[in-house]
Design a protein around this nucleic acid. Structure first.
Length: 563
DNA sequence: AGTTTCGGCGCC
DNA sequence: AAAGGGCGCCGAAACT
């Protein structure tokens, strides 16, 4: 068995490599070569490269045009395994894992660096000390045993493999970048915001709106300062707690309209305006740094440029190269389909076995055809809504799809009680999640009474504290959002394989949406590949269920035309 | 003066 | 209509 090889970069720029056996231990000699990329390029028969960190190794390979089919990221696997073992807070570096194995002092993890505008994405992780291959392999072999110790070893193996595949995709997307027309972007900014004035102050349209707001209040008010706005409303006899749009919008005051408009445009200006363009777009590409596995739920994040928060109006600037197309694909009601798959609720699976509008089908069964009510109920079930119509609608949902609602209710209870909660593949929620970022807070049931308990005793005696309820909401959402992330990783892995023989490149991924940049003549092949990858991911992740995972796809030259 | 937190809002 | 989950980013405010 020489289909998987370990790889460890050395400090001198060279590399150690060795074939591995089934037990994860070396099955042959350790080779030392001077050139990392050459060592990999020269061994196309290797099916999976085992290395400490994809972010450390793979950008260097890509820089010399070398792609790999599969990898196993030891530090990512360590994170997932530690989580599964209920040891979220422990250091996750390979060096720490080795120290735990040998009983030595465990080094803390190096601090995470953050991205800088325009900087090339991390070619190295300079604070990491290279680990000799023999040490790396020791950690890897132990991780194989730890996979076997989980409740569902085959799922855990799939999870670590899927996340490693996601890291390959992320590195490749970081290299390709999202096609971006600075010219179109500037045109959009000009249309929305008007001319820029010398000196870098507000553009014309914002200045006008600020004047309108001031005029409506009868004094100078800066609409970008919440404290100023709250004071101005108070002087006009209107008490507001904040200047959030939903709170402001319904007020009867002449300042509301220009104020709301100002806030909308101000956001575009500061977050995706001319300076953003200057900082993040180079040579026709927007390059946020995609980070796979950046959150506890398994969703990705981007480092820099707000890559996962591109406003709809700005998507006009995402334009394919001449002769190329963007295949934009969006999973239809993914979270509800995932809930069906993980809960195995017969009724919901039957509904999710169709490609038609899922919310309409749910409402036909539980809400007399009122689609909006069905959607509110489902979102309430998944997000843990605590008041309003959601609760009433949740009851109707529970009657019709009892197993599905029970699944998220159970997760919420487990979260409240500080028990571990897992996604379908075994990604595990930290027991204290949902109460801020105090990772040190250990598992356990808070004993305090809720601070906001009404005098009438709306909460039953001994009801969970505010913190515990926050943990419950987090855990409730975690099983759905996290299992959806599991599935999405398998989707990406399958789609990446399908694109391997083509010019097509994955250039964007946002939770349930992918964009592939490809020559026009490949577009229809890519569309088919996405549909196949989605169904394959569904089977691999959740086993054989009736649940389908349809996508809405569009072949366009401009992202904004996709919806 | 430099760093952290807050308020607000963009996306899913 | 309002409110639940996950993120990142910006400037201002609050802190050291």
């Amino acid at each position: 068995m020489t289909d998987r090889w370990a790889l460890a970069p050395a400090e001198d720029g060279g590399v150690e490599i060795a074939p591995l056996g089934r037990d994860g231990l070396p099955a042959g000699p350790v080779y030392r070569e001077a050139d990392l990329a050459g060592a990999v390029r020269g061994r196309p028969e290797v099916a999976r490269w085992v290395w400490r960190s994809t972010a450390e190794v793979y950008p260097r390979l890509l820089a010399t045009g070398v792609r790999v089919e599969r990898c196993y990221d030891i530090e990512d696997a360590e994170t997932l395994l530690l989580g599964h073992e209920g040891r979220h807070g422990e250091p996750r570096s390979a060096a720490a894992a080795l120290a735990r194995l040998r009983g030595g002092p465990v080094p803390p993890d190096p601090p995470q660096r953050s991205a800088e505008p325009g900087a090339q994405s991390s070619l190295f992780e300079p604070q990491s000390v290279p680990l000799p291959l023999a040490d790396l392999v020791e950690v890897y072999a132990d991780q194989q045993r730890r996979h076997d110790a989980t409740a569902h070893p085959e799922r855990m193996r799939l999870l670590t493999a899927a996340e490693s595949a996601g890291m390959l995709v992320a590195a490749e997307m970081n290299r390709s970048g999202l096609p971006w027309s600075a010219e179109v972007h500037r045109q959009v900014l000009h249309d929305l915001l008007g001319e820029r004035y010398a000196g870098g102050g507000e553009p014309r349209r914002l200045a006008e709106l600020a004047d309108e707001v001031s005029a409506a209040f009868g004094r100078r008010v800066r609409p970008d300062l919440p404290a100023d706005v709250i004071k101005a409303f108070a002087q006009a006899g209107i008490k507001v707690r904040s200047t959030r749009r939903w709170e402001i919008e319904s007020l009867d005051h002449a300042a509301v309209k220009p104020l709301v408009e100002y806030k909308k445009l101000y956001r575009i200006w500061v977050a995706h305006g001319w300076s953003w363009l200057q900082d993040w777009v180079r040579d026709g590409r927007f390059r946020p740094e995609f980070v796979a596995g950046g959150t506890v739920t398994g969703r990705w994040v981007t480092n820099g440029g707000g890559g996962l928060q591109i406003p709809k109006v700005i998507r006009r600037a995402v334009v394919a190269d001449p002769g190329w197309r963007l295949v934009v694909a969006d999973a239809d009601q993914m979270e509800l389909r995932v809930l069906a798959a993980i809960s195995r609720d017969p009724g919901l699976m039957e509904v999710a076995g169709r490609e038609t509008d899922l919310y309409q089908s749910v409402s036909d069964r539980a809400f007399s055809g009122d689609r909006d009510q069905a959607k509110i109920a489902v979102l309430g079930a998944v997000y843990g809504q605590t008041s309003g119509d959601g609760l009433k609608n949740l009851a109707a949902l529970r009657r019709r799809f009892p197993k599905a609602v029970a699944y998220v209710d159970d997760a919420a209870r487990a979260g409240e009680e500080g028990r571990l909660v897992r996604t379908w593949l075994g990604r595990t929620c930290p027991p204290a999640a949902g109460v801020g970022d105090d990772a040190a807070e250990e598992a356990g049931i808070p004993q305090d009474e809720p601070a906001d308990s009404p005098a009438g005793g709306e909460w039953a005696p001994g009801y969970a504290s505010t913190d515990a309820r926050a943990r419950g909401r987090f855990a409730r959402n975690f099983v759905v959002q996290g299992s959806a992330a599991d599935w999405a990783l398998l989707l990406l892995a399958a789609l990446r394989q399908a694109c391997a023989g083509m010019a097509a490149e994955l250039v964007f991924f946002q939770h349930d949406e992918v964009i592939v940049h490809c020559p026009e003549e490949e577009a229809e092949t890519v569309v088919a590949a996405i549909r196949e990858a989605a169904e394959l991911a569904g089977r691999l992740t959740f086993g054989r269920t009736p649940v389908r995972f349809p996508f809405t796809t569009a072949v366009v030259e401009c992202y904004a035309d996709a919806k």
